[in-house]
Structure formats: C-alpha cells, structure tokens
Design a protein around this nucleic acid. Structure first.
Lengths: 233, 233
DNA sequence: ACCTGAACACCGTTCAAGT
DNA sequence: ACCTGAACACCGTTCAAGT
C-alpha cells in the first residue's frame, strides 16, 4: 500500500491506447464529444501529451478509421466473385454499424490509411479473379463508392414522432408533396390502406448493392470496355 | 455628400441577404471559413444581429442548401422517364459543382428543406409517370441516395504530385498494393504500357448512374415487387 | 421593446518556461 | 532533453445591461 503514494503512476501512453480510448469515447458519447481535451481527460493526461502519439486531430481520426476498418472480417475463400464481394461488403457494414460515427468520419478522410488500402486492394483482387478487366474493375470500384465499406449516405432520417402526430403532419404535407407522402405511406391512389412507415435500411442497402453487382456482371459478360462499348445488351 | 455622415446606414438585413452572403463567403473562402462571426463581419454587422434572421448555424446551413437546390433547373417536359431523371440529376450535379461545399453540407442535413422536398417530390413523380409502382419507386429513390442530387461521396482524392514523384510512389506501393497500382496505372500484367493517371469524375458518375437507371428499368419491366419478386430475368 | 457588448464555455494548437 | 501550464486565436450562443 505504501509502495506507491502521491499521484498514481499511469500506464504509459501509446498510440494504440490513444486510439482505442478515442474509439471508446466516440462510441459512448458520440463523435461530437470527441475533442483532444476530453480524450486527454479520459486518459488522465494533459492535452499536449496526446501530441506525441498523434500529430494532430486529423491523424487521430485517421487512426480511428484504421481501427474500425481493421475489424472487417476476411473474405471467404472458395466462393465466386459476386458472393465474395457481397459477403465482404456486408461484413464491412456490420463493422460500421457497431460504430455509428465511423461512416461519417470515413467520409471526411482525404488520404487513405493502410487498412483502407489493404481492404481496397483485396476487393479489387476479387473482381480481377472473377474475370473483370482492369478497366472495368476501375469503373466498378468508383460505382461502388462508399458502398464498398457497407454504407451509403442516408439523407434525411425520417423524423420520429408519435404515430398520430405523424399522420397529421403527412396529411398536411400531401397537398404540396403528394408523391413523397404516397411513398411514406406506401399507398397508391387506388388503394387507401396504409402499409406502414419507416424503412428497412438493411433491405435498401442490399437492394441497391445487388442491383449494382448484377449490373457489373452483365457488363463483364458483355466484354464491356470504356474505350469501345460493344453493346448488344 | 452631407446628407449622410458618421457611420454609414447599412441596407437592412434580411434572411435572403444573410443567406446569399453566406453562400458567397463559402464559395470564396471555403466552408471551413464560414463562421457566424466572419459572416457578420462581411455584412458589417454585429454577430448577434444574424440571430434575428436565422435561429442558429444549423438553420443557416439549411438555408444555404435551399439556395443551391433552388438553382437546379426544371425538368424537360415531353421526354421519357429515363431521359427526364437523367437530365434532372445532371442539372443538379452542375449546380453542386458550382458550389464545391454544397454536397458536403447537404450530407450533414438531418431535416429536408422545402426546396429539397420539392425536388424529391418531382423526381418521384417522374418515376411514377414512367410506370414505376409506389413500392419500386421507394426502393429506387433509396438506391439513388445522394446520387439524385448529382454527387457521390468521392473517397480519398488521388494526391496530386509531380509525375515522376508519383511514379516512384506507385512503384513503392506496388509490392503491398499490386491491384490498386494496376488500376491507378490502368495497366494489366500483360501489357506494360501506362495508359494514364487521374479519373474523369463526370464519366464515373454517369457510368454508375446509367448502370442504376438500366437496372431500375429492368425491374420495372419485370413487374418487380418487394413482397414477391417474380424473378425470371 | 429592441439591440448589443461582454461573457461563457468551449475548441485545436503553439510556445516558452520549468524540471 | 523532455514535459506541460499558460496562452493564443478562434468558435457558437447566452444573457444582462444599455438605449
């Protein structure tokens, strides 16, 4: 009990410890609560101590992305390219859904981190192994965009209100935005019944992903090339 | 010359004047330079004066989005749904490209503004007029995501370096990231010639857009439904 | 009643002073 | 040589004091 008095000796800081504390803070308190000052407080350290392990806040965010992208499971061996790509992307999606801030931070990165490059390189390899040309693979990777990490920018979350408040709001909107209201209620002009509100994000994600993968396959089979599209559809 | 002395009488502030000054500031100095304080300075006004026309900074950003979305040209009448949607989206893209900050701000909005709702409503109308069911239109709008506003999250801009510095960097990368380098150089293992670096963003955007629109069309023709997909494709 | 200066509670980062 | 407290140059927004 006497062998250590006064201010407790802290476990020495390391880049890994800084990053995992940052991930934990963002997970618990939200990305807006992640500041260098608050992070240093969590680590029981003076703010400037962080700057020995991380050049600045941008590099901290880069490191956090690397941690999450590193959590993405490896590809299943021995399945065709479409199944492999699909499984990998859905695995990435699960990793990002565990850390709600991660997709938002990933979007703001300007330089890819090593884990991101590893991930992209292996995904390109899946397409190449599946018989895609370098040319087609290039465009296909662009077409995937952020979807290759398992997310898309969800614009405008539907505001959560009490059901009958929401019904009243929609009734008021229907004069000016008839099509939006029809879709929100999943109802046609013909049938008056309301099917339901809210969207199944996972369904929407897989719907668009499969649409793209099928489109990619069709171009591959057709021998598509950007310089000369031999379209016979 | 004497009819006005001392501090000059400023044109009275209005929400419209605040918003257009904010757009101009973001266009000129970048979105990171847009602060309530700097904006008030541009308008020759004390910071707190802004808060009579805009509840807070979030509402300012909402208003700025509304200005830009309002710039999107109207749809061409008398063309089929695919041409109409395509033209509208490319018009939205041109509007966003005129204001480089706009897509980034649009992504962070949580509640759609009136101009956004107008835009979405009219686009849904295009699909409905083209014979899409409410159900399919719903999923199709989700699949478009931010692409309906003419942009996609471009992850990781390729860093611009001097050509032979870049060549050296790529040579160093090729051991660990062979597939990425192959795509960056647009070269196959067979042919050794380098085609070129850099991407044509407009080409990539239209490539993915047309892939999606074609996919949508195929589902429509097939009578696709989320409850019972009669796939015979 | 309206307007606004000062203040509050934060930021990320620099830098010089202390050990 | 290393570490760190104080300071700098900002934020968005509140609030009370002034007219």
């Amino acid at each position: 009990m006497a062998h250590q008095t006064g201010t407790p000796r802290r476990a020495p800081l390391s880049r890994a410890r800084v990053l995992s504390a940052a991930v934990a803070l963002a997970d618990d308190a939200g990305i807006d609560s992640l500041s260098m000052r608050k992070l240093s407080q969590d680590l029981g350290v003076v703010p400037m101590a962080l700057y020995k392990h991380v050049a600045n806040k941008e590099e901290l965010l880069d490191g956090m992305v690397d941690v999450i992208v590193g959590e993405i499971g490896p590809p299943d061996p021995g399945v065709d390219w479409k199944a492999a790509v699909r499984q990998r992307i859905l695995s990435a999606r699960r990793a990002l859904l565990r850390h709600p801030w991660a997709s938002r931070v990933l979007e703001t990165r300007t330089t890819p981190t090593p884990a991101v490059l590893d991930y992209q390189d292996s995904m390109i390899g899946m397409f190449r192994d599946g018989g895609f040309s370098v040319d087609l693979t290039h465009h296909v990777m662009h077409a995937l965009g952020s979807r290759m990490f398992g997310f898309t920018q969800e614009l405008f979350e539907a505001p959560s209100m009490e059901p009958h408040v929401q019904a009243a709001a929609l009734r008021q909107m229907s004069a000016r935005y008839p099509h939006i209201v029809a879709i929100a209620l999943r109802t046609d002009h013909d049938e008056g019944s309301v099917v339901g509100l809210g969207c199944d994000d996972q369904f929407e994600f897989e719907f668009a992903l499969d649409l793209l993968l099928d489109g990619f396959d069709r171009l591959r089979l057709r021998g598509w090339s950007s310089t000369a599209d031999l379209s016979d559809a």
